[in-house]
Design a protein around this nucleic acid. Structure first.
Length: 488
RNA sequence: CGGGGAGUGGCGCAGUCCGGUAGCGCAUUCGCUUUGGGAGCGAAGGGUCGCAGGUUCAAAUCCUGUCUCCCCGACCA
């Protein structure tokens, strides 16, 4: 078999690129750091989007859309926010091109009076709108989400994991009280955790970021962190409690029941196409993509096997009701009856693309009343009776979904350890993985650890081991262990 | 943005040092034989060698600039 995908152990980065290419998820674009998301990749995003969107609606949110362009002046209103994003903004300076001998050039006379920023995130333009929407406590809360693209001028990019333009959703909510905003922040963090585990089968640790890792403009940044197969952590989603920072910057006040004018409390939260990168690196193997059934564009593929037209007719007639029964269960099933590829070629292709279940049907199966069923996650193959197959497949897809979560949970557990001393830490971090250790809570110590080991504090976990101890570096008291890892 | 590597039919590569008619494998099209793990034979089509300048009788090859990708660093979802 011609091997098109590099083995993970030989070169993990190359493996990742090979999987993306062989599964036809995305291509590089002619513009640095951007990607073309191909139908296979976009279809996964659409599935993610549909599930998340429902979860947002179920928690009372509405969708809206705010502009791609933001007046430059808006970005400077919140001091921390500017500082965080200033270095990675695309700026629109002109509005016209003009023809010259060899093509086109910028028309210097079209210079904009106020330059525009391509949104790196939408807090500023949204809070500018909220000022007009909010007068009374009766106008609150505002619970809005938008599905959009954003641009961050990144130095170093990787398909899905970090691209200059990416797709995401950003929720922006406004509340009358601090408590309500904090509850919203934690509620959405929980939505992300549930989505990651139930749909992506990707276990995550939830927690709060340290000050140095916090979102620019937030009071607290909560996150879901997962661990990839190569032992590097991936921040998969963030939920921010913004306090009154944006309300103050954009002068958004409301009159409360007590007649007082008060600043509004805010949250924002987002996940992006980066999730697809996380999905790939959590489950896929040396044969290509492995997708959890809940996010797979095609859940079951049927490959007919035949030597001649007579057999083809026989096999397809046998397969038709089987496919129909599976469809009736609400399962996405595709018949691959292309004649220009041999079955073996199709097997390899569907494996590379991560189809969770494959059914092969040949004349032998027709004769015996069977089908061959192959699982993508375990690569197990079984010949079973076609009787009641739809129900069996429905249950099996659920089992694959839960087995994948379990396998990933076990994998991450095996890559997670608790460490007491800094020497031990320095040695252990070389193997990758999550490390729980005590930290004295200072930015200096955090920075020292980062410089010496390249590991960062991924989060201060919201649950788990919270017994006090001593900082592994300084010996100062620590209220609980925090989560370290090298990260993407 | 710094250091290293790379860009040649759709994909993977050779050719570049030492300038002289652009090649190979896979894929594609047609025909026949095939079909239970990436089929075989025969024929055909497809590339101004990333792009722009320059040197030369002659440039994929030498020089300059530039764009994109990969790896390592600094920055970030």
């Amino acid at each position: 078999m011609a091997k098109r995908i590099t083995n993970r152990k030989d070169d993990y980065s190359q493996w990742y690129l090979d999987v993306v290419k062989e599964a036809k998820l995305a291509d590089h674009s002619p513009v640095r750091g951007c990607m073309v998301i191909r139908p296979n990749g976009f279809s996964i995003w659409e599935k993610m989007k549909a599930s998340l969107d429902q979860m947002f609606k179920d928690t009372g949110h509405e969708n809206a859309y705010f502009p791609l362009f933001i007046p430059k002046s808006f970005l400077s209103k919140e001091a921390q926010h500017v500082e965080g994003f200033a270095k990675e903004c695309a700026v629109i300076t002109h509005s016209r091109l003009q023809s010259v001998d060899n093509g086109v050039e910028v028309d210097p006379s079209s210079r904009l009076e106020e330059e525009l920023i391509v949104r790196p995130t939408s807090e500023t333009i949204i809070w500018d709108a909220y000022r007009n929407w909010i007068q009374s406590y009766r106008d609150l809360p505002i619970l809005i989400n938008q599905w959009a693209n954003v641009v961050r001028w990144e130095m170093r990019t990787r398909l899905f994991l970090r691209t200059m333009e990416f797709l995401w959703q950003e929720g922006h909510t406004a509340h009358a009280t601090e408590q309500e905003a904090v509850e919203e922040t934690l509620q959405m963090l929980e939505v992300y955790r549930v989505f990651a585990e139930e749909f992506m089968a990707m276990p995550v640790v939830t927690g709060v970021k340290t000050e140095s890792e916090r979102f620019a403009g937030a009071v607290d940044t909560y996150c879901i962190e997962s661990l990839m197969q190569d032992g590097k952590a991936l921040q998969a989603g963030t939920s921010h409690f913004l306090g009154q920072n944006f309300a103050k910057a954009f002068d958004v006040k409301f009159q409360d029941q007590d007649g007082q004018h008060k600043y509004v409390w805010a949250t924002s939260w987002g996940v992006s196409t980066r999730l697809i990168g996380g999905l790939i690196m959590t489950h896929s193997d040396d044969n290509g993509l492995v997708l959890p059934p809940k996010l797979a564009p095609v859940q079951v593929v049927v490959v007919p096997i035949f030597k001649n037209d007579e057999q083809k007719t026989l096999v397809l007639e046998y397969a038709a009701p089987v496919i129909e029964q599976i469809k009736e269960k609400g399962i996405t099933v595709k018949l691959d009856d292309r004649e220009n590829f041999k079955p073996g070629w199709k097997f390899a292709e569907h494996e590379a693309q991560g189809v969770p279940l494959r059914i092969a049907i040949g004349p032998r199966d027709v004769k015996n009343g069977n089908i061959e069923l192959a699982r993508r996650d375990t690569l197990e193959k079984n010949i079973i009776s076609a009787e009641g197959i739809a129900g069996h497949i429905s249950e099996l897809l659920e089992k694959i979904q839960s087995d994948m979560l379990e396998a990933a949970t076990e994998r991450i557990a095996s890559q997670t350890r608790h460490i007491e001393t800094y020497d031990e830490f320095k040695e252990s971090i070389e193997d990758g993985g999550f490390i729980y250790a005590h930290w004295d809570g200072t930015a200096e110590t955090e920075e020292k650890i980062k410089e010496e080991t390249k590991a960062t504090i991924r989060c201060i976990p919201t649950n788990g081991d919270d017994s006090p101890g001593k900082c592994m570096v300084t010996g100062k008291p620590s209220s609980r262990k925090v989560l370290f890892a090298r990260s993407y």
